[in-house]
Amino acid sequence: MIYLQLFLSFFQIGLFSFGGGMAAMPLIQNQVVDIRGWLTLAEFTDLIAISEITPGPIAINSATFVGTQIAGLPGALASTFGYILPSCVIVSSLAWLYGKYRELTALKGVLACLRPTAVALIFSAGLSVLVLSLWGTGGFTWDAASIDFLAAALFAAGLFLLRKFKMNPVLVILVCGVISGICQWAAKVDWL
């Protein structure tokens, strides 16, 4: 049953995404693209773009988007509920434990090891999105001519602006979109 599948997939995403925001992204990719095949990598990338430029947590946005695409509003509700259920249970038990013990050595250790793991997973997801952006759905090749130069330029400029000037990420994404839109329009116009 599709609602149960949505619920279970997002339940796992909710249960295993430690480290907030971006940490959910590789798990969503894993469930939604690799395991279930609900979205293609390109659609998943669109979803990340939409999530970043709209308010709200990336995973809730994804749960709604995927749920709606696959099974309409009931699908969106099933996946969102699946995603927040582990949070409800774990956060309440943690609050209880925290009140009792305060010093949770093992939990601190778990989190200290999950942080570098999250970085590695986000980096992996980032690489697959970058390959898609620069080489298209065909995947990575050594042939420099197959690189989308506009995408490469936007990526490099965006990264520079984020690192050097701490520019707002939402703005960077929107500006990249607008520039690409203008280039496409300019290429179509008959200038002479």
């Binding site: 773009a49 980032g126 990526f155 979109g177």
Partner: peptide, 27 residues
């Protein structure tokens, strides 16, 4: 739609920059 596609393509490049920025900071 062709224009929407082009905008999403650009935003994908922007998303990559955002992801790598996060990875560089966290890493």
């Amino acid at each position: 739609n062709a224009a929407v596609s082009a905008i999403f393509k650009g935003m994908t490049a922007g998303i990559c920059a955002v992801i790598f920025d996060v990875v560089i900071s966290m890493g």
